[in-house]
């Protein structure tokens, strides 16, 4: 092996030395778990529309609330991180993962108090999601209004 002199050479060498994530296995696990969470959402939705007789928009909101509850409940009993270790994006991308990203820092920073610990850290990930989601929706709404 030749001596490494520059940072660029070293980065290249390190990239060769660093093992990649087992991508195919990860993709498969993300697909299965992500699909399963969506299917669970569909079952809840179907039950609410055909079983309970809610209209579609209400059922959709109740489904979201239910999935959020499940995600946060599994976070609180120290289970969601284990699902996440297995499924990766399969349990990050669904709304249950959003719920997990809200509850996990709030639980972790409880030791720093109810206001700046729990209250502030609740939005550690949810904050950026809402900032960009809502801002984009306003931009989309404005363009839609102007084009109408």
């Amino acid at each position: 092996m030749k001596a490494i002199e520059t940072k660029a050479d070293y980065q290249k060498y390190v990239d060769e030395k660093t093992p990649n994530s087992p991508i195919w296995g990860n993709l498969f696990k993300a697909f299965i778990v992500g699909g399963a969470i969506c299917l669970m959402g569909q079952f809840i939705m179907d039950y609410l529309t055909t079983g309970v007789g809610l209209d579609k928009d209400t059922a959709s909101s109740v489904t979201s609330i239910t999935l959020v509850f499940i995600g946060i409940f599994l976070t609180a009993i120290n289970v969601y991180n284990r699902i996440g270790k297995f499924a990766g994006a399969g349990s990050i991308v669904p709304i249950t993962g959003f719920a997990n990203s809200i509850a996990s820092p709030a639980i972790e920073f409880k030791s720093e108090g109810l206001v700046l610990g729990v209250g502030a850290k609740l939005f550690q990930v949810a904050g950026p999601v809402l900032v960009y989601g809502i801002s984009t929706s306003i931009a989309v709404g404005l363009i839609y209004y102007l084009l109408k």
């Binding site: 991508i23 990860n26 993300a30 992500g34 569909q42 994006a89 993962g97 950026p128 989601g133």
Partner: peptide, 28 residues
């Protein structure tokens, strides 16, 4: 439902493994 839901998560997984994006960035 299963296939599309799974496929959207697969896109997230590719981003995580290939670009080292954190989960917060994926969600945003």
């Amino acid at each position: 439902c299963f296939v599309i839901g799974g496929a959207i998560c697969v896109v997230g997984q590719i981003l995580i493994d290939k670009t080292k994006l954190t989960s917060a960035r994926i969600l945003v």
